[in-house]
Computed example of a mutant assay.
Amino acid sequence: MAVTLHPDLPLHLLSHLIVADIAPSKGPLSSEFQAYVGAMKQMEESKVSTRKDAQDILAAHEPDPMTRAFLLTNLLPPEHNMPLRFRIPLHTIGAAISELGSFPYEPGEREWDGPTLFIKGTKSKYINDRNIPIAKEFFPNATLEPLEAGHWVHAEKYVISKGPQ
């Protein structure tokens, strides 16, 4: 969304925008995200060697098995009895976590009038009644399509135009 709204974006570079279950609003991330990064750091520091050990550490921070499975997709495949590690830079994400809830523009400051599709999980809190009007200020040609899912849905189960398969 921020790239689409950037003033230096060449005209006609983008023809459509699809946004998956997030809104262009500012606000602190919930503490669960810092806990996820902390648990992932703990896994690396503990030099876990199995996904089961990684699951056990993460389970203390996240009760939902689907969310844990999603977070563990960032583990690199094991190599020659080496400890598991993450493909994402945990130190960088940990240091920047407070900024991840920011958005660089204020409503009314920038606008992109191309066709925009916001997909909202019906069981998710990431797009809500309060920030839908804000999204429309940035993206006046936006439509909202609910998807019967939470935020951490496995997208391969769905085809947007046809619903669940």
Results as ranks from 00 to 15, higher is better:
90 L>K: 02
39 A>P: 00
89 P>C: 03
60 A>M: 10
110 R>G: 06
51 R>K: 15
81 N>K: 13
87 R>Y: 01
115 P>M: 02
78 P>R: 12
68 R>L: 12
56 D>P: 00
77 P>A: 08
80 H>V: 05
42 Q>N: 12
54 A>V: 03
29 L>Y: 01
104 P>I: 09
55 Q>H: 05
50 T>Q: 11
95 A>T: 04
81 N>S: 13
44 E>G: 06
85 R>T: 12
78 P>K: 10
53 D>L: 09
29 L>Q: 10
52 K>H: 10
113 D>I: 02
39 A>V: 02
116 T>I: 08
103 F>Q: 11
104 P>C: 10
98 S>C: 02
54 A>G: 02
94 G>E: 11
35 A>M: 06
66 M>A: 14
81 N>C: 12
45 E>L: 14
84 L>K: 03
81 N>V: 03
71 L>K: 09
73 T>W: 01
114 G>A: 03
46 S>T: 14
91 H>V: 05
112 W>I: 00
29 L>R: 06
41 K>M: 14
94 G>T: 04
47 K>S: 15
110 R>D: 05
47 K>C: 13
96 A>L: 11
81 N>Q: 14
75 L>N: 09
81 N>A: 13
47 K>N: 11
105 Y>N: 09
100 L>M: 15
51 R>D: 01
33 F>C: 02
60 A>N: 12
31 S>M: 05
104 P>T: 06
70 F>Q: 13
72 L>V: 07
62 E>C: 11
39 A>Y: 04
39 A>C: 11
83 P>Y: 04
74 N>C: 07
61 H>K: 13
66 M>F: 10
49 S>A: 08
99 E>N: 12
103 F>R: 09
74 N>I: 03
65 P>A: 10
45 E>H: 14
91 H>K: 13
87 R>W: 01
100 L>V: 03
54 A>M: 05
104 P>H: 11
57 I>M: 06
109 E>G: 08
67 T>E: 06
99 E>W: 00
59 A>E: 11
51 R>A: 05
82 M>N: 06
